[in-house]
Amino acid sequence: MTCLPKSAPAKKLGLVIDLDICVGCQACTTSCKEWNAGGRAAPVTDYDAYGATPDGVWFNRVHGYEVEDGGSGRTVYFPRSCLHCDNAPCVTVCPTGASFKREADGIVLVDEDKCIGCKLCSWACPYGAREYDEDAGVMKKCTLCVDKIYNANLAPASRMPACVSACPTGARSFGDLGDPASGVSRLVRERGGYDLMPEQGTAPVNKYLPPRARTAEAAPLASAVNDRGHALLKWIDKVFSR
C-alpha cells in the first residue's frame, strides 16, 4: 500500500549527520556502494565504470559548499541521502505499491519486483534521494541498510548502516529518533538538529546538526599573530618584515 502508515511508526530509525565534523572524505558514499552492491537493493548499477565517463546509481552523495558568513567564510561538506520522511511524498505518489514506509521502524523502501520504473517518486522527492537504475528499470534508494541493521549474523556493534560504520570522524549517528531518550534524539536536542527544506512538509526523520559557531579564538590568522602572539614571535615578525 502506498498510503503512509495510519499510526506513527513504533520506531523512527534514522541518521543524525553532524556537519561540524564531516570532512567530506567520501567513506560513507563508498561503503554504502560496497554494502548495497551485494545487499537488498543489489545491483547498484554503474555505467561505463572503468571508461571515460563513469556514472551510476548511488544512495548517498557528499556535496561541498562554501558559506559566506560575514567573516572569512567556511567550507561545509554535506552528505545527502534519503531522510526516511514521516510524510514521504515519494510513497504516496507511487501508483503500484512498490514504494512503502514500514510501520515497524519507519524505513522507506522500494519493492523492486513491483516497481514499473515510472520515476514519479523521484519527481516527488525534494531531496534527490532516489536514483533510477537504467539497467534494472526500477528505482533505487537508501535502505538504511535494512539487511545490515537487523542482521543476526553480524556482531551487535556492526548492526548499523554501512555509512555510519565507515565514517572515520563519527559524523554520522544511527538510532531511534522517535525515542526521546535515545542518543540520536539527545544529539538533536543538544546541538539544534534541524530538518532539510521544512517548507516542503515532508517531516524528515533524519536530522542535520549545524557547524558550530566560531569563537573569538578562531579569528583570522594575521590578527592572531599581531595582537595575541608571543613576544618572541612578534620580535621575529618585526625583524623579518624589515
Binding site: 556537519l19 567530506g24 556535496h63 561541498g64 559548499y65 562554501e66 558559506v67 559566506e68 558568513d69 560575514g70 567564510g73 567556511r74 567550507t75 561545509v76 554535506f78 525534494p126 531531496y127 534541524y194 530538518d195 532539510l196 527544506m197 521544512p198 517548507e199 542535520y208 549545524p210 557547524p211
Partner: peptide, 15 residues
C-alpha cells in the same frame, strides 16, 4: 533551506 546552512550565512556550491 535545502542544506540548513542559511543558519550560518549564504551557501554556494564549492565542490
Amino acid at each position: 533551506t535545502a542544506t540548513g546552512l542559511d543558519r550560518l550565512g549564504r551557501p554556494r556550491v564549492l565542490q
